[in-house]
């Protein structure tokens, strides 16, 4: 699992551990719920900056119009489906390793997102979602005055 999946960078413990906790929680809720969604599909990478976050997911061969991205508060949801290559008569699979079907994934960000300014791009099979932090939540600098 650790070979392929999770690798974290040091010095940024808070958001990642919080996100991981929530992810587990979400997975638990969804899996308990029945056949709602596949687990942890697709895998995501997240970059966090002061005023925005970027979430990337690899979804090769998916029609961009079949990817549904929604943001509620500080939770991002990516869902959609991927179609298998249809077989014509007389054709057969020699090997079938690529998975097809529905996917759904939720992720909690360390801040609330300005949903109107969310931007999603799909290029070379990778979806890149830019999530600006909501104005109300941006850190405000308070100057200290000398008395």
């Amino acid at each position: 699992m650790f070979e392929t999946g999770l690798w974290r960078f040091g010095g940024f413990a808070d958001p990642s551990s919080d996100m991981q906790r929530l992810r587990r929680e979400m997975d638990r809720i969804f899996t308990d719920f029945g056949q709602t969604a596949a687990r942890e599909m697709p895998p995501v990478n997240a970059w966090i900056g002061e005023s925005e976050a970027v979430v990337c997911a690899e979804l090769p061969g998916v029609d961009p119009s079949a990817i549904d991205i929604s943001v509620v508060g500080d939770t991002l949801t990516i869902s959609g489906s991927r179609e298998a290559e249809p077989l014509k008569e007389g054709e057969s699979y020699h090997r079938q390793e690529r998975s097809a079907g529905k996917f759904s994934r939720s992720l909690q960000l360390p801040f609330h997102v300005d949903a109107d300014k969310v931007d999603a791009k799909y290029d070379k099979g990778v979806v890149v979602i830019t999530l600006p932090r909501s104005e109300a939540e941006k850190p405000k600098r308070i100057s200290v005055k000398n008395q």
Binding site: T4, G5, M19, P43, V44, N45, W47, A53, V54, P110
Partner: peptide, 16 residues
């Protein structure tokens, strides 16, 4: 591998 200016990777589930 993608790079985003002024941001650091906070969470990674897949390698590039």
């Amino acid at each position: 591998p993608p790079e985003f200016q002024g941001m650091s990777i906070a969470y990674a589930e897949y390698g590039v």
